[in-house]
Amino acid sequence: MLTRRAALLAGAGAVGAAATAGVLTAVTGHGPAGSTPAAGAQARRPRSASAYRLQPLTGYGPPHAAPRRTLVRREPLLRVSGRGRTMVLTFDDGPDPRYTPDILDTLAEYDVRAMFFVCGEMAAGSKELLARMADEGHVVGNHTWSHPLLTRLTRRQIRSQLERTSDVIEDACGERPEWFRAPYGAWNRATFQIGAELGMEPLAWTLDTLDWTTPGTRSIVQRVENGAAPGVVVLSHDAGGDRTQSVRALRRYLPELLDSGYHVTVPRRDYA
């Protein structure tokens, strides 16, 4: 049985091999293109609401008239590609009533949307937090029921893990999730196929904060600031252990990213 650390590192290696192909194309329609990463403190600007922070990468359009079909991918999407200095923040393993509300409060303070990949066994007892996520414009994604290593499960078990979690999300948010993420970043052909059958796109990450190792708030902040760049998808956690450092780090690096000109937002699905 792999430990969480060993499994994650193994999965991250597999994901890294596909890094050049997994790109989600999207545009923000705001700001000039740029590639300079954020580093260190920047001059503060007034924290007034900014419309672009409330917009997903390509906006919310009307429902598609034709049936929507999800392609079966061979690797997960790892980053977003578009105009402007756009980044996506993602949080895994929750929701956890000890930490998730604080993260939602910080995101609300700066009018920023993020993605939350939730585990069904956590979400089933905290549906009010899922409802809040949806109400505040965040994307709620599927992170399986019990966070297993999917590559060791049968197709039937993989489907059960994903379907049960989608059921909880639909019950709490009113619609089924459009995105999923494999625990430990461990993907295989069956996972991609079943995810697509359930109408979900696979999203991995570009930058791992390693907050699950509890390296210290400063270390998490520095990792985000040093790795910030257009198209980056940041992985953090709001559950699965003591996430106090993750909460504190977000309060520090989010205003720095915004002051540096980054558009922190969420993607929109492209359907075939």
Rank of each mutant, 00 (worst) to 15 (best):
residue 195 G to N: 12
residue 98 R to K: 14
residue 217 T to G: 04
residue 79 R to V: 08
residue 140 V to C: 08
residue 49 A to I: 11
residue 266 V to F: 03
residue 261 G to V: 06
residue 225 E to P: 03
residue 20 T to F: 04
residue 212 W to F: 14
residue 134 A to H: 14
residue 195 G to R: 12
residue 246 S to D: 09
residue 11 G to I: 02
residue 247 V to N: 02
residue 264 V to N: 07
residue 228 A to R: 01
residue 44 R to T: 11
residue 141 G to M: 09
residue 188 N to Q: 12
residue 238 D to N: 13
residue 15 V to N: 10
residue 227 G to L: 08
residue 257 L to R: 07
residue 140 V to R: 08
residue 131 A to S: 15
residue 112 V to N: 03
residue 75 E to M: 10
residue 23 V to S: 10
residue 120 G to H: 04
residue 82 G to F: 07
residue 178 E to N: 05
residue 94 G to F: 00
residue 124 A to W: 01
residue 246 S to Q: 06
residue 157 Q to F: 07
residue 216 G to R: 01
residue 188 N to M: 05
residue 94 G to H: 03
residue 218 R to H: 13
residue 244 T to W: 00
residue 68 R to Y: 00
residue 138 H to K: 11
residue 84 G to L: 01
residue 182 A to T: 11
residue 119 C to R: 12
residue 121 E to L: 07
residue 58 T to A: 14
residue 245 Q to C: 02
residue 164 R to E: 13
residue 118 V to S: 08
residue 45 R to Y: 02
residue 236 S to V: 01
residue 37 P to G: 03
residue 79 R to Y: 04
residue 32 P to M: 01
residue 54 L to Q: 13
residue 109 E to P: 00
residue 8 L to E: 03
residue 217 T to V: 14
residue 215 P to W: 03
residue 230 P to Q: 12
residue 162 L to M: 15
residue 121 E to R: 13
residue 248 R to A: 15
residue 261 G to I: 06
residue 113 R to G: 05
residue 17 A to M: 14
residue 127 K to N: 04
residue 187 W to Q: 07
